[in-house]
């Protein structure tokens, strides 16, 4: 996709989001799922998702359902990119070494 791989400022809330993804790196999660897993408020969560996506750590897509059939709007699903997986693993690895990168 050509998205840049940039550093992201690590806050506790960002780490919670990444931690939720690292539990099952292949899973696609919606904002509501992440709110439950990371215990994050919506005002914090959605800006983080946009930042990580613009940094190339995440990709997102619309849920493949027809709203008229499902009776509800489509969900936006987020997934770690290989770059995001590598960088998130590096971040948590640095914590395990006792050094914050």
């Amino acid at each position: 996709m050509g998205r840049p791989d940039r550093d992201v400022r690590m806050s506790l809330q960002t780490l919670r989001v990444l931690e939720a993804f690292l539990e099952q790196p292949a899973d696609e999660l919606s904002g509501a799922d992440l709110q439950k897993r990371g215990r994050l408020a919506s005002g914090t969560l959605y800006p983080i998702l946009l930042r990580l996506e613009s940094a190339g750590w995440f990709v997102s897509r619309w849920e493949a359902v027809d709203p008229s059939v499902a009776g509800r709007p489509r969900r936006r699903l987020y997934r770690l990119t290989p770059t995001g997986l590598r960088r998130a693993s590096e971040v948590f690895g640095s914590f395990s070494r006792g050094v914050l990168a």
């Binding site: 919606s30 509501a32 408020a41 919506s42 005002g43 959605y46 709007p73 936006r76």
Partner: peptide, 23 residues
């Protein structure tokens, strides 16, 4: 659309209002 989709997963008036305020 994303927020409307995530909104029903918050049960209760307080949770829904908190979600809206967070948006």
């Amino acid at each position: 659309e994303e927020w409307f989709a995530d909104f029903p997963l918050h049960a209760g008036a307080v949770a829904q209002l908190r979600f809206a305020a967070g948006c």
